[in-house]
């Protein structure tokens, strides 16, 4: 059964989020994990349109979003402002926090507990 909360990964490089989602899918098969990596023409950067598409493609009702660097966050925020799905953006260590959240969501841990466990991973 798909979980209520899904995970969104945003990176400047598509291979980073492709690789990271492989890692997460291994421990979180019922969590909807979608990705937005790189620019529209698959260059290095971040794309508002790709992020919006990844939000829409996510099967969950609410999204926990993780990102690598600043412009990913800014584009994420702009998508969040126009999105109907609630999105929570985490300023946490990208790989560790996305892994923690995915594993905990798969285990059926409450959202408050997930957020609490992400707190010490805040680095930005």
């Amino acid at each position: 059964m798909t979980r209520k909360y899904g995970v969104l990964l945003v990176s400047h490089v598509s291979k980073i989020v492709d690789g990271l989602s492989l890692l997460l899918n291994e421990v979180a098969r019922d969590v909807s994990i979608t990705t937005a990596g790189g620019t529209d023409d698959d260059g290095i950067g971040s794309s508002f349109d790709k992020i919006q598409a990844a939000v829409n493609a996510n099967k969950a009702e609410e999204i926990l979003a993780f990102y690598d660097l600043g412009s990913s966050k800014m584009n994420l925020e702009m998508v969040k402002e126009v999105s109907e799905k609630p999105i929570t953006i985490f300023d946490t260590a990208f790989i560790e926090s996305a892994y923690t959240a995915s594993a905990l969501l798969q285990a059926g841990v409450s959202i408050d507990e997930v957020k609490k466990q992400l707190e010490p991973l805040k680095i930005k």
Partner: peptide
């Protein structure tokens, strides 16, 4: 916003 593809996209867009 949609074509710059770097931090300047959301900044100039905003």
């Amino acid at each position: 916003l949609s074509k710059i593809g770097g931090a300047s996209g959301p900044l100039y867009g905003s």
